[in-house]
Amino acid sequence: MSLAKAVVARILTYVGIALATGFFALPLLWLLSAPFDDSPSYGVHWPSHLTLHNFAALGHNPYAFGSLVNSVLLGAGTMLLVVVVAALAAYALSRVRIPGRDALLYGLLLLSSVITGTAAMVPIFLLIFQLGLIDSRFGVVLVLSGGLLPAAIFLLKDFIDTIPRSYEESARVFGATPLQILRHIVVPVARPGLATIAVWTVVQVWGSFLTPFILLRDPDKQPAAVLVRTFYTEGGSPNLALISTFSLLYSIPVVLMYLFAWSRYGFRFHGGIKS
């Protein structure tokens, strides 16, 4: 490749990245202006009266902080359950030949789309009611996990499929148990995939409204996605000041989690595994 061509390619890449940045940043501007505005509207403008009043108002809300803690609890609980259970299942399904395995997995994935709607809330509520898990965070974690697992297994299996089996074979020669092989060989190599699943799970839980809303009664247990929907008037009009302010706080933990998970578990440069 000639130098000129390389320079042009480089420039094009940077222009593309700059455009993409603008595209993704632009809608977020509202989140940076509205919380500091006395009376925010549907439009981005420099606040006429710069104020922290909205944050103070939120500070007086008896549920604001607790709801973020609840979101973290639900997110972490579901994430742990989904990642561990999906990793075990994906590994087994990747290494054991079962006819129709992929079709079965995809069938489950399709079913998981059925239970997202309101129609499914009736069976889910009655089920959790019979199990005595109404108003329990654990019940919410179980329901959310059930819905997320098929996609998690589906994704993770792809990652584990790409890990060559020769590693496991040599480990077994040295007497390692399957669980040890999973922990010490498969998990480290599949880390970026696991991190992806973990982040994805937390994001799904973070935005989940209907399931916790229906299954939890005590407002002190409700997560932030439910709380953000309380900032409306009796007539159904949004209180944009509180919604934008809370949204700003609400998005911070997930971004931090992503940066943490990704710097710790993602982006591992490939250690010379040959397939």
Binding site: F24, P27, G207, S247, Y250, Y258
Partner: peptide, 15 residues
Amino acid sequence: IESLVLLAWVLPSSV
């Protein structure tokens, strides 16, 4: 850039 792209994805639909 990844954080920006991700923000678009993590915020709940209502927001």
